[in-house]
Design a protein around this nucleic acid. Sequence first.
DNA 1: CGCTCATATGCCTGTCAAGTAATACACGCT
DNA 2: AGCGTGTATTACTTGACAGGCATATGAGCG
Lengths: 102, 102
Amino acid sequence: MSVDAFAVLAEPSRRRILERLRRAESSVGDLADALGMSQPTVSKHLRVLREAGFVTVRTAAQQRIYRLDVRPLRAVDDWLGPYRRLWADHLDALERHLESQE
Amino acid sequence: MSVDAFAVLAEPSRRRILERLRRAESSVGDLADALGMSQPTVSKHLRVLREAGFVTVRTAAQQRIYRLDVRPLRAVDDWLGPYRRLWADHLDALERHLESQE
DNA sequence: CGCTCATATGCCTGTCAAGTAATACACGCT
DNA sequence: AGCGTGTATTACTTGACAGGCATATGAGCG
């Protein structure tokens, strides 16, 4: 968990990996194939994701199966909380306005 | 809106600026003072934030007053949507499990 | 034990972004 | 018009990081 979650998500390739792992766990080679990236590149991104807690690994024969862990994403979601209140409030204000128009 | 929202948020200084603007709109100098950053640094970050739509500016005399705009944050929130479903589902599963235990 | 497949790691290079210092620009005031 | 304040912009230096290639590690199998 050494690296900041936002910094991890800043890299588009890593978001693509997460999107894929959201559907199903996957081996490194499958990810590289599916995303059109080289195997070393995928491995490096997976290392970053793993160290930040976004994924966990399991060894199956000679493959490493990576699986999504949602906890860092929940942290991002929590960070968004106070801001979400802002637009929720604005929506409330809009609703009140619309009601007063009727 | 040229730059990716996640890349913008990856910079801790910019998140601090957003946190401050969440409480109240502010001039460049006030931000620099409050956050202990140099004025050019703040201006530079504000430019990035502005080009990505996170803030809007208004000119008041010789000051530029910056104000938060939540739309890019809503985009991030939307991106999180499918993942939020994941842990919501897991919670549901947990609840069902607990119910079956009673 | 050597071979092979799957993955990880090291090294190199190019790129890009952050911070600083100096400077330019815009506005208001006298 | 000239001056001072507030802000933007520039040039420069430095550091981090991504991608490519080559190579190391490790597990399974003959």
